[in-house]
């Protein structure tokens, strides 16, 4: 019976990912004096220490591309809805769209989110400094973790501040009479867009916290790199999404 009939075999093989052998730094074999082979020519699972990282990056990239479409759909609905209207009793074309001025606190929130992206990027880079990675890989200590953790804590705090800031913005709008149930379409969009984006950020904060915990619990250097790297790309993308959404809400009402 061919081996393909027994899935168990496949499972066992997975455990040998083939990345234990080389330190997870961004140096590729050049062929100078070595075996001269290109890692991409090897079977998957044996393509060097960065293989797992690039796999996860690819997954995050596609997931975010799908997510982008979600927001694109919301934004296109925004523009369609904005141009909608009806004929009133005197046959005038009127629209029920009343632009709402975004609460000024959103500017502060945007600055906070940008800042958090910056701190996250600093944290991410700590994990890829070659000299620290080598030290961690050799088991001489955890300099990268020690350096990255504070920046990640700062990012989490800033992220929480952003979400709280959005919450305050909602409260301010409600006080002005634009609550979610008010019949005004622009306020629906405001709440829906900030709400779905906020949900993404809450998920991001959970992921950040989990990554922070994982920094101290994961044994392998490359896995620590992966969690921080993927969370960072997610976080950056949410920051970019927010800038677009914020510009939309602030200037395209």
């Amino acid at each position: 019976m061919p081996a393909t009939f027994t899935p168990k075999n496949v499972e066992i093989e997975r455990k040998h990912t083939g990345i234990g052998g080389k330190p997870p730094v961004d140096r590729r074999p050049t062929g100078g004096g070595g075996d001269g082979d290109n890692w991409d020519n090897r079977p998957s699972g044996r393509r060097g220490p960065r293989e797992l990282l690039s796999r996860y990056r690819l997954g995050v990239l596609f997931a975010l591309a799908g997510d982008l479409m979600f927001f694109v759909a919301l934004v296109s609905a925004f523009f369609v809805r904005q141009s909608a209207g009806h004929f009133d009793a005197r046959e005038n074309y009127v629209s029920d769209w009343h632009p709402i001025a975004v609460p000024p606190i959103l500017w502060v929130n945007t600055a906070i989110l940008l800042l958090s992206s910056l701190t996250m990027e600093i944290a991410r880079r700590q994990l890829f400094r070659e000299i620290d990675v080598m030290e961690e890989w050799l088991g001489l200590g955890r300099p990268a973790v020690k350096r990255a953790a504070p920046w990640m804590v700062v990012t989490v705090v800033l992220g929480v501040l952003f979400v709280i800031g959005q919450w305050i913005a909602w409260g301010q709008l409600t006080q002005q009479g634009f609550h979610f149930n008010s019949p005004d379409p622009s306020s629906h969009f405001f709440y829906l867009i900030t709400g779905t984006h906020g949900l993404h950020l809450v998920l991001g904060i959970v992921a950040l916290a989990a990554a922070l915990g994982a920094l101290f619990t994961l044994k392998r250097v490359e896995l620590r790199q992966i969690v921080v790297d993927c969370t960072a790309w997610y976080w950056h993308t949410m920051g970019i999404f927010w800038i677009f959404l914020f510009v939309l809400l602030a200037y395209f009402q």
Binding site: L68, F70, F71, V72, A73, L74, A77, L192, T196
Partner: peptide, 17 residues
């Protein structure tokens, strides 16, 4: 799937709202 199911999800959110 990536492109269109996201749009359906957005539409479903709008309809639910």
């Amino acid at each position: 799937t990536l492109l269109v199911f996201s749009v359906l999800l957005a539409a479903a959110v709008l309809l639910f709202s």
